[in-house]
Design a protein around this nucleic acid. Structure first.
Length: 436
DNA sequence: ATGTTGAGGCGTGGAGGCTA
DNA sequence: TAGCCTCCACGCCTCAACAT
């Protein structure tokens, strides 16, 4: 849709002036980033469309539904615009329709969905002046005296979490796994630290283990874990995927936010101690799925456990590949039948006080295999989200060959370390009694 | 941002047992 | 034997945790 974009290049005051001119100009029917200021509040509206009696305001979100927190976001904009004397006829939220399937033809009709939120907005706008004053007072005042809680992460993660943690307990009760209800009860009783939880309070086995290990300071490993691992067959495939999920689909037959796999790493260990590493990475920018699937099948042979961390992720990707390529379906699904989940073993049988209630591979590795660390990675990729950014940079048309090669080696290095981490974790479990 | 899985709490309903 | 209580299993729901 053609319209006038209000630039911020010359500062907010100029943007406000430009907005006034655009509104006065009856040839302009759509304004992007229209800018307004009322009192201390400056806002930029994503889309304004001229209607018969006034304007329609549309806020664009990358989420896939209208969420509670979006309403006050639009309400404050609505309030500022109305206070500036501009008439609004209604407010809309525009978001991503994640059922949209791209057909690869450049046609994105259906990618977006809209919701009329005029009623919800007007329901809270009466209160807006008071709310605004409250927020201004809070910003001007001292640090709020409030304990950490769910508000630190929901609906968005707060930037000051690390700061606040410094003054809190060393092992807050919020680290209890699936323990939000228990944590609430404990905090109501004035208990903030896991080490202060009275014996007998917790009922879940996992939570009890966290409490006991935290108090004793000694890691716990159930010998059952060792015997389960020793029973696994050969050869052993340690496998990890990297994927990318675009809000706006890039390739035919993909949906918004669909996790498209573009890279895998596999360490293969044979019974005779012989080992091998294989990998796949496609940064051509073409749909990587077909070659990903074919190379994976070729790598994994037809017997031996395929060891992953959090099996639902890799299994789901393989299932999606099987749906995308019916001719490979049988071979792909045969891989899924061999998948063994290292995460489940860890959750059931291991805990170290430094894990702080988390069994993610990034928490388990430093506890169990401290000599292997992601910080040794020299490239720009240290976790899954950075892998996505790096992949996107690599396939972007403006990336030259040298940049691509650098990104490629960073990605390969990172994914290889992820599977090596699983190898070392499994080794550590194997040798636990003798070592440690 | 996604999807999958599992934990834990709560309500429901059937089985079994007690009493009048 | 009718009526009522208790207990436990099960299903449903919400939330959290994990991967990217």
């Amino acid at each position: 849709m053609d319209g006038t974009l209000i630039s911020m290049d010359n500062g907010p005051l100029q943007a406000i002036e430009d907005t006034k001119k655009a509104i006065a100009d009856t040839n302009v029917n759509v304004i992007y980033e229209a800018s307004f200021k009322y009192g201390e509040v400056f806002i930029r509206a994503d889309i304004l469309e001229r209607g018969n009696q006034g304007w329609f305001l549309t806020e664009v979100k990358s989420s896939t539904e209208c969420k509670d927190q979006h309403i006050p976001d639009v309400a404050i904009q609505t309030w500022v615009i109305k206070m500036c004397g501009v008439e609004l006829e209604g407010e809309y939220l525009q978001f991503i329709n994640n059922e949209f399937m791209y057909q690869g033809d450049g046609n994105f009709m259906g990618l977006f969905a809209w919701q009329d939120i005029t009623a919800s907005v007007s329901g809270i706008i009466e209160d807006m002046a008071g709310k605004k004053d409250l927020f201004i007072r809070m910003l001007d005042g001292d640090l709020p005296q409030i304990k950490m809680g769910s508000q630190c992460k929901k609906p968005y993660k707060c930037d000051y979490i690390d700061y606040c943690k410094q003054s809190g307990p060393k092992y807050p009760v919020s680290i209890l796994p699936n323990g939000w209800r228990a944590a609430q009860k404990l905090q109501d009783q004035g208990i903030d630290d896991v080490r202060d939880i009275p014996n007998g309070f917790l009922t879940s086995e996992k939570q009890k283990r966290v409490r006991e290990v935290t108090i004793s300071g000694k890691p716990h490993l159930d010998p059952e874990a060792t015997s389960i691992l020793k029973k696994l067959g050969w050869p052993r495939y340690y496998l990890d995927f990297e994927t990318i999920g675009f809000a706006v689909p890039h390739w035919k037959k993909t949906r918004p936010y669909m996790q498209v796999p573009f890279q895998w790493s596999c360490h293969i260990y044979h019974k005779n101690d012989h080992s091998d590493h294989k990998e796949f990475l496609d940064i051509t920018g073409n749909d990587p799925r077909r070659e990903f699937a074919e190379s994976l099948i070729a790598c994994c042979g037809d017997e031996g456990p395929i060891i992953v961390y959090n099996e639902s992720f890799e299994k789901s990707r393989i299932r999606e590949l099987a749906e995308a390529f019916p001719d490979l379906s049988d071979e792909l699904l045969a891989l899924n039948a061999r998948v063994f989940d290292l995460l489940k073993i860890m959750q059931k049988h291991y805990y170290h006080p430094s894990m702080m209630g988390s069994w993610s591979i990034k928490s388990v590795l430093p506890a169990l295999v401290p000599e292997l660390t992601y910080s040794t990675l020299v490239g720009s990729v240290h976790d899954g989200s950075e892998a996505q950014v790096a992949y996107y940079d690599a396939i972007s048309s403006d990336a030259d060959l040298r940049v691509r090669q650098k990104i490629s080696s960073s990605l390969l290095e990172y994914c290889k370390l992820d599977t090596l981490a699983m190898v070392k974790i499994a080794d550590a479990l194997h040798n636990y009694q003798s070592g440690h």
